[in-house]
Amino acid sequence: MGKADRISGFFWLIFALIIIIKSYRLGLGKVVEPGSGFLFFWAGIVLGIMSLVIIISTFDRKKAGEPDKPILGEISLGKIILVLAAVFLYALLIETLGFILVTVMLFVFILGVVEKKGWLFTVLSSFIVTSAAYLVFKTWLQTQLPAGILGFLKF
């Protein structure tokens, strides 16, 4: 984990520095009446020190001759990126297109494009799952789900 720890250690160190600066600007207050930034200033200091411990320990291990292992291993990121893109687009489109349309699109994308299942299975499953989810969450549990551009239809 040497290389991985070095990268993550630096990431958290920068994060800690940002928090320390932001907290200081917020105001540390007095000990009698701690300010908005007081506790987070110290949380940032602790995080920064711990990050340094992680970074320094990786150099110790490097000296000891420990080999660096690959961080992500031999995995294909394609599927993961596609699924993440689908989730992000879902967030962007849910209020405009509405729950029903965007959910059908999500399932068609994941089953048809990501998993490469047959189109009949993909389309049928997408409509069945979306209908079932709508009935359970919207009709039965009365969850607020956006109607979007299909708002003119009364279900």
Binding site: F15, A16, I19, L39, F40, G44, L47, M50, S51, I54
Partner: peptide
């Protein structure tokens, strides 16, 4: 470290 991040 994660506890500190959670607090922040």
């Amino acid at each position: 470290m994660m506890a500190a991040v959670g607090m922040i």
